[in-house]
């Protein structure tokens, strides 16, 4: 719960879920985006995103697969928000989407990956970075 006096620290932070009028607010409902970090929503079906179980604060890797080749396009990105597909700012027209923090170059790579092939989001919270970035290795 957010008490009187704690609100000032939350002003300007980004809301991580849609909140109905009258709902108690929690600090977990907010995330601070720095001025140097970009946020990008990745539209993906829940079955390609840990069954829809991702939550703000999770770390994810983004994989692209096409023509029998899979590669990592983003590793260890923080999940900022998860659109549940029911509408609102992130859900759009009923589409599930996961918003991640990334830099400008990574945003370009993800945008390019979105334009072709299939994307999968893999929860990597607490995991070591992958040692193999492309499969098959000689692709």
């Amino acid at each position: 719960m957010v008490r009187t006096g704690e609100l000032d620290g939350l002003i300007g932070m980004v809301v991580t879920r849609s909140i109905s009028s009258g709902t108690l607010l929690s600090e977990r409902d907010f995330v601070m985006l720095s001025s140097t970090v970009r946020a990008m929503s990745i539209p993906v079906d829940p079955e390609h995103a840990v069954g829809g179980a991702l939550r703000p604060g999770d770390r994810v890797d983004v994989l692209q697969s096409a023509d029998g080749i899979a590669r990592y396009v983003l590793v260890g990105a923080e999940v900022l928000m998860v659109g549940d597909g029911t509408g609102g700012a992130l859900g759009g027209a009923g589409r599930y989407a996961v918003t991640v923090a990334l830099d400008a170059e990574s945003a370009l790579e993800v945008a390019a990956a979105l334009s072709e092939g299939t994307l999968d989001l893999v929860r990597s919270t607490g995991s070591a970075p992958p040692s193999v970035l492309v499969y098959p290795p000689d692709a």
Partner: peptide
Amino acid sequence: TVSVAVAAEDISAGARLEADMVRFTPV
């Protein structure tokens, strides 16, 4: 009794929090 924050209006995910989006209620 303490006062806790509740949403004064419907707030969409992705919005930046502003003071007038919040009111306090005693619990």
